[in-house]
Amino acid sequence: MRRLTSFFEDAPFRLYLGLFLVVVFVIVGGILPWLAPTDPLEWYQSPRNQAPSWAHVLGTTSLGQDVFWLLTWALRNSLMLGLVVAFFSTLIGVFLGLAAGYAGGLLDRVLSFFMDALLCIPTLPILILMAALFGGQLALPAICVLLILFNWPYPARQVRAVALTMREREFVNVAWFSGESRVRILTRHIFPYIAGWSAANFINTVLVGIATESALAVIGLSSAQQATLGTMIYWAIQYQALLAQRYVWIGAPVVSIVLMFIGLFLVSSGLSMRSAERRMSV
């Protein structure tokens, strides 16, 4: 508890603002979907093409779906995808980054090569290729796996760099000479340094994950039958929401993406500012 209060005392303003935005979206995407009166994906549950009103806060689509409830489902799926991708990418990245930086030698060379090589491969074309091969659409779990495959090198590189400098620090040597085990040195002495960066990176990966899936979805290559922020935009474009001037339909997912990404970015940059300050003070 003590740590939590001090965390907020020296946190920069942007961290608060970002956390506020993210919490709002987590509530909208995490809790509200359970309260939806009907399955918002079902067609013709509501009158079609309604403007925003009390009954339908954000209006309805030309398929008779309620835009607000659809948006809550879309947020839930997009957030889930982002979190799963970020969790596994960070886990794999931190583990392999530590292994590379701490072990050095051949293992380090091989792992570093894979990190650099994967970073050079543009993710989206590969996803497009997969989607094209498997019937024009990719299922969300498949997208998750591919995104994890291409996103672990970012945390791994950073962690490796930190681990490299750590290896030379006095206190790590002291720990080593006083007979502590490797595992203990890693978890007790090195990991706390990496935690801040990893948290920032985690948030960043959530952002990249959601952005990439939406990119795929906007051109209709993600699972169009699921509600995600990207597929909402895709269907709005498909049903000519723009020509019909139904801007709320397409605007709702677009504005959500913009606000949520600003929130996530504020949190991640706030976190890395904080861990940079800490590093200076140590």
Binding site: L207, A215, V218, I233, I250, V254, I257, F261, I262
Partner: peptide
């Protein structure tokens, strides 16, 4: 700048075209 940077290019492209 902070509000612009996190927006994906294609979302911005969509907003501009709207």
């Amino acid at each position: 700048a902070i509000c612009l940077y996190p927006i994906p290019y294609y979302i911005l492209a969509l907003v501009l075209s709207i």
